[in-house]
């Protein structure tokens, strides 16, 4: 069992590593493709897994992870369970500037299998951003990918003069 922490490895230079976590069928690979195709000044590396904890083998070869994205499919109860089961395996410091939630299929309001409040509450509780996406249309997927890359750039500390905490603090207003 390997927990993810932010202190045991070195980050890459001008490179972000994004870990997508989500059950089968939530669109991890489509999102990963969209992420890699997004035009950006950074080198983007995407890794996927179904749930935490990550397997013990290859632990040493795994790179430093800049951004952990939990993908929750709003139409599937199982994906919510995966989220709830996986969260305990993250070290607390990861929540400061590493985690982000994505609510997939958020526009299919009438086929929700649980309230979207659960995801919003999760974001508020851990102080992490929540993004909303759709797999159906290409433009929405690209929009989501762009938002994730922007998040990753800030969270990986590659944006000049700005940090994840600054962004969170700015929500409280002047």
């Amino acid at each position: 069992m390997a927990t993810i922490t932010s202190i045991n490895k070195e980050p890459g230079v001008d490179k972000v590593v994004i870990l997508l976590i989500g059950g089968r069928g939530v669109g991890k690979h489509r999102l990963a493709t969209a992420l890699i195709q997004t035009r950006s000044s950074l080198t983007v590396e995407v890794r996927t897994c179904v749930k935490l904890p990550l397997p013990k083998e290859n632990e040493q070869e795994r790179p430093y992870i800049d951004l952990i994205i939990f993908i929750v499919d709003m139409t599937s109860r199982a994906s919510k369970m995966i989220l709830e089961e996986s969260l305990p395996y993250l070290m607390p410091e990861c929540f400061v500037d590493k985690v982000c939630f994505v609510a997939m299929n958020s526009s299919m309001v009438n086929s929700y299998s649980f309230g979207i409040d659960r995801v919003i509450d999760c974001g508020d509780l851990y102080g992490c951003p929540v993004l909303y996406g759709d797999l159906q249309s290409r433009s929405h997927l690209d929009n989501l990918a762009q938002q994730i890359i922007n998040q990753a750039e800030v969270k990986a500390g590659l944006k000049y003069n700005i940090s994840s905490n600054f962004v969170t603090a700015s929500f409280h207003g002047p």
Binding site: P129, Q147, N150, V154, S170, F171
Partner: peptide
Amino acid sequence: LKPVHKLLCSSS
């Protein structure tokens, strides 16, 4: 303002 502000932070 808050939702819009959150979006602004991750948008183009």
